[in-house]
Amino acid sequence: MVIHITLGAMRYVNPKEDQLGRDHVGWDPNMDDEALFRANRGCWVLGERADREQYALLSSQGIVRQAIEIDRLVPVSGGRRAIEGRFLKDGHPVYDAYVGKPQPIEPTRNPVTYFESPHAARTCGCGCGAPVTLGWFLPGHDQKALHDRVAKIGTVHQFIEWFDRTYAEDNRTMSSRIIDITPHTNDKSACSAHGAAAECTTLIADVVLSDAGSEHVEWAVCARWLRENSDAAAWLKAHPEAAALLDVS
Rank of each mutant, 00 (worst) to 15 (best):
M1C: 01
V2N: 00
I3F: 01
H4L: 13
T6L: 10
G8S: 12
Y12W: 15
V13Y: 04
K16W: 04
D18M: 03
L20S: 06
G21T: 04
H24F: 09
H24T: 12
V25S: 05
D28K: 10
D32P: 04
F37I: 03
A39Y: 05
W44S: 01
V45T: 08
G47W: 05
A50W: 04
D51F: 09
S59L: 04
Q61Y: 14
G62W: 09
I63P: 05
A67Y: 00
S77G: 10
R86D: 03
D90A: 06
D90W: 07
P93D: 01
Y95Q: 00
D96C: 01
I105W: 03
P107N: 12
T108Q: 13
N110I: 09
Y114T: 04
E116T: 10
E116C: 05
P118I: 04
R122A: 05
C124L: 10
C126A: 15
C128G: 07
A130R: 13
T133P: 02
T133Q: 09
G135A: 06
G135W: 06
G135L: 09
W136F: 13
L138F: 11
H141L: 15
Q143R: 15
G154C: 00
E161K: 07
F163Y: 10
F163D: 03
F163E: 05
R165C: 14
D170C: 12
N171D: 14
T173M: 09
S175H: 15
R177E: 15
A190W: 01
C191S: 03
A193L: 09
H194R: 13
G195D: 02
A197E: 08
C200N: 01
T201S: 15
T201L: 10
D206G: 01
V207D: 02
V208W: 08
D211I: 06
V217Y: 08
A220M: 01
V221E: 03
W225F: 14
L226A: 05
E228H: 12
A234L: 08
W235Y: 09
L236W: 06
A238F: 14
H239D: 08
A244C: 13
